[in-house]
Design a protein around this nucleic acid. Structure first.
Lengths: 165, 165
DNA sequence: CACGTTACGTAATGTCATAACGTCACCCTC
DNA sequence: GAGGGTGACGTTATGACATTACGTAACGTG
């Protein structure tokens, strides 16, 4: 009667941070470096390291998983990673996935044209954990009269084309 | 350089549960009652009480605030309120506001025509805390090829018309 | 009646995030 | 080069949000 087993993904054990594409990671990090220097932001070693972990994971990562991944090179405490995530999200280099309490790197538009403004539309595959990010170029057509939007959270959960088979 | 003071609303102290419109609350509860009996769902006293608190609050309420509000009539523990919220959200009588870790009553379409399917578009005023809910009748136009959406989280934060002045 | 199911009580624990304070390096200006 | 502001980060503790696991009572059905 009531749909059960919902929401499935947010109850799963967190997936381990894994390396996916080192080449693109390096490219992304270099782009992020340029992005920051152009704007007078400092991508410190700690912030760069956290962004690197996010990029390597290729999907949403929990803050405490980042923390664990950080541990080997010195004991890190929660505020350390949350401060880094705060910087990255403010800068538009990462997004928080609200419904997952997780964080994901923002790969779009930091090289040249269209920097991320902070509001992205996320398509999250509940099978493989992959996140496809689209920037929102449209306002909702059915906003209440006179409502002024300052920030939007748009997250779609489902199955990507690859996993739907 | 980096916008500061963001996100403002989610860091505020939780607002107290307050009574807003008792008449509409009763109407809503009666409608919810009918909604459940029609579907073979049982709106138990506990579930009804939690829904009542949500309706009275007229906006997002934190689980532990519900818990406090429940206390006077017997000591309630977290699972109690989370179970009630789970039922209400599954039934479509309430929604979780993900970016706020809060819950809000769903007032739409439980009387006759168009029951809430679970995916609503929420417009949350960061000044007065009011939530305006629209049901989503459209699919995102720019979904990745072949992506099948099972659930969407859409939350817009900003200022309502009344507070914009 | 024995059994399964549903709802809720209760204790403990797990998970996510921040507060509050200290230190150090850097830069500026006098 | 002493003083003072600022930004980044370490460290301890705590707050805030949510679940696991187990027990019991009520109810319906074979």
């Amino acid at each position: 009667m009531i749909p059960s087993g919902w929401p499935p993904y947010s109850r799963r054990p967190a997936k381990a941070v894994r390396v996916k594409a080192m080449t693109s990671a390096i490219q992304t990090l270099d782009a992020a470096e340029r992005f920051c220097t152009e704007r007078g932001l400092s991508l410190t070693p700690m912030r760069r390291r956290v962004l690197e972990l996010l990029v390597e994971a290729g999907g949403p990562v929990k803050a405490y998983d980042l923390l664990s991944a950080l541990k080997p090179g010195g004991a890190a405490q929660p505020p350390t990673v949350y401060r880094a995530l705060d910087f990255l999200t403010r800068a538009g280099l990462a997004h928080k996935v609200e419904a997952l309490n997780a964080y994901t790197a923002c790969l779009n538009g930091h090289d040249e044209e269209d920097p991320c403004t902070g509001s992205a539309e996320l398509f999250i595959c509940e099978s493989c954990g992959n996140v496809d990010e689209r920037h929102m170029h449209r306002a909702p057509s059915d906003a209440p009269d006179g409502f002024v939007i300052s920030r939007s959270v748009v997250e779609h959960y489902g199955q990507c084309a690859r996993c739907a088979n």
